[in-house]
Design a protein around this nucleic acid. Structure first.
Lengths: 154, 154
DNA sequence: CGTGAAAGGGTTCACTC
DNA sequence: GAGTGAACCCTTTCACG
């Protein structure tokens, strides 16, 4: 994909934590001139190492106080079954994360809800209505211990 | 926490998708002057609605190809037990997410690893070594279906 | 791969309504 | 709360080492 050297790693580490830092400040952190840093950053973005930049919002400030982890099993693992389920799940704005999994359940979802009543609505109107679902298992987060955007580098 | 009006929502939606957009471009998107937009952004950051900005990196480009979901139970739920576990888990750089949960297991973790061998090392050297652990259950992501940084706004 | 300079554009004031 | 203008700072690109 792209060779990533020590200075690139320093750039990535900084941008993981401070995604809106100015190029000038970033250059100083990693010990480069602004122009050299700008070129490297451009390269990292264009080669796909950096996939994007995102503001992290306080779910609580936006009145999303609940996080549920939901495991779902489908009636089969045919490609068509999976594709139909995934197309439907992508339409639900409360789904933060969805993985196809090995093991007991086919999918693991992380879902944000305003409160228990809101979750009940999501469960009834969205999750239970998803195609091919045969088993749903929900549990709720009591507290967030860690939420890192990326794996810690070197 | 803070009153968030329609224009604030527009600002937040934009910054979720394009965290490094310039203030001038952001102002144009939401129909404000640059100075008004800058003031609102400042307010959203200082009041804690925006918790930070982060580059999203290609785990694959950094040779992290595996995501594991790990459920862990402890020997008790005393505050001291939880605190000791959490302090230890925060030291492991491969842990992306950790929630204290209701239900069968006490914690759910999302872990990034380079490959199965790397995961085996993490499991042995980190997870099994965490204090008070009595039960570990791992499963692996076969494919990422959804990974949104935040809940979809209006 | 790095530097420095220059042009263009962005950010941030004080001020105004 | 929002807009304007001006000073200042930053980004980007260029020629060059």
């Amino acid at each position: 994909m792209h060779d990533v050297d020590t200075i690139d790693i320093a750039i990535l580490k900084t941008l993981q934590r401070e995604g809106r830092i100015s190029n000038a400040a970033l250059a100083e952190r990693v010990g480069l001139s602004a122009s050299a840093c700008s070129r490297r950053l451009d390269h990292l973005e264009k080669s796909g190492v950096i996939k994007g930049y995102h503001a992290r919002l306080a779910h609580k400030a936006l009145d999303y106080r609940m996080i549920a982890i939901v495991n779902i099993s489908l009636s089969g693992q045919f490609a068509k079954t999976l594709a139909e389920f995934e197309a439907a799940v992508k339409l639900c704005p409360n789904v933060l994360v969805c993985y196809l999994m090995s093991g007991e359940y086919d999918y693991t979802l992380r879902i944000a809800a305003r409160d228990l009543e809101d979750y009940e609505r999501i469960h009834r109107d969205w999750l239970s209505a998803l195609p091919h679902v045969v088993k749903i298992n929900s549990s709720f987060a009591l507290r967030e211990v860690i939420d890192r955007p990326n794996v810690g580098l070197g």
